[in-house]
């Protein structure tokens, strides 16, 4: 096992750092491409995504209809593009809200402890334990349907996860020597949190939020059943997948097309997230 002692030399770290930069640029470009597609979906889609033509319903992919047609005879490719827009924008919005809110709550709880910690954590117990479906039903009936209400409903029930992770991370760095040192050096709490606690806890949080993009996308679709979420004819990826569920054996393109789009979005955001995390990692830059 002698060869395992490859202590990273300064030179190697520099190389790694420049690799990170290259990758970051690459993934940023990919993300930009995705976002451009999302923003200009209406302009680039070859057909009107809502135009029905029942004479060509459920056609397999062809040159004319790259991803086939759905049972209303609508062009799947156009619907996937537009669906990507609906899904990505609302999901990003949701994930940003819960990540920021949850992380803030978790770090404060972990750092200060005491009553604040107990109260916030009990609230989070209630949110976690409370069946999301009950809450969503109440929202649907109180505020009415619509995507923004669905985002709101999901945000309320999803933030505690981030609070939990952030709290546990904070707890594990709180008593480390460098925090104590920073405190002794007279740094105020906010500075310590921002300079030391946050950078040391962000890794797992960022990974969780990137991964949640895929999950939240499907959860948003699940709510449309309650009248929350996108209403027809709005195309939405999760909805398209669950709507095509029983066609898996007979007309698979109806469900696989949107699935690939979700996969692509998830991959791009996650790779970006990972690289961004590597880039932010204080230990990578400290030695630079």
């Amino acid at each position: 096992m002698r060869e395992d002692k490859k202590t990273p030399s300064v030179r190697k770290l520099r190389v790694r750092k420049s690799h990170i930069k290259t990758r970051l640029v690459l993934f940023l470009l990919l993300t930009a491409a995705l976002m451009l597609t999302v923003i200009f979906a209406q302009q680039i889609c070859p057909y009107d995504p809502n135009a029905q033509d029942t004479s060509i319903s459920l056609q397999p992919p062809s040159l004319e209809h790259l991803a086939g047609t759905d049972r209303f005879g609508r062009d799947m490719f156009s619907r996937i593009l537009v669906g990507l827009q609906t899904s990505v924008l609302s999901t990003l919005c949701l994930v940003v809200i819960i990540t920021v809110a949850g992380t803030a709550a978790g770090i404060l709880c972990g750092y200060y402890g005491g009553i604040l910690d107990s109260v916030v954590m009990r609230i989070s117990d209630v949110c976690l334990a409370f069946p999301g479906l009950v809450f969503a039903l109440a929202i649907a009936s109180l505020l009415g349907g619509g995507l923004h209400n669905a985002v709101f409903a999901l945000a309320v029930i999803s933030w505690p996860k981030y609070a939990r992770i952030a709290r546990s991370q904070t707890l594990s760095v709180k008593n480390t020597d460098y925090i104590s040192a920073a405190r002794l050096a007279g740094g105020n709490s906010i500075q310590i949190i921002i300079r030391h606690v946050l950078p040391n806890s962000i890794g797992p949080i960022l990974v969780t939020s990137m991964l949640d993009i895929g999950t939240m996308l499907m959860e948003l679709a699940g709510l449309s059943f309650l009248g929350l979420g996108a209403q027809p004819p709005t195309a939405e990826l999760g909805n398209m997948m669950s709507g095509g569920r029983s066609m898996l054996q007979t007309y698979p393109w109806v469900i696989i097309g949107p699935g690939i789009a979700i996969f692509a979005a998830v991959v791009i955001f996650n790779l970006l997230g990972d690289t961004f995390r590597d880039y932010l990692d204080p230990r990578n830059s400290r030695r630079n």
Binding site: A51, F72, L137, A140, G227, Q231
Partner: peptide, 26 residues
Amino acid sequence: LPLLAEAAQATLKEIGIQVEINSTAD
């Protein structure tokens, strides 16, 4: 039912009627 709503939405639009669908468990 949601299929019917969506189909009606498209054919009614052709004759100039805008249809807002509210398909809800509520």
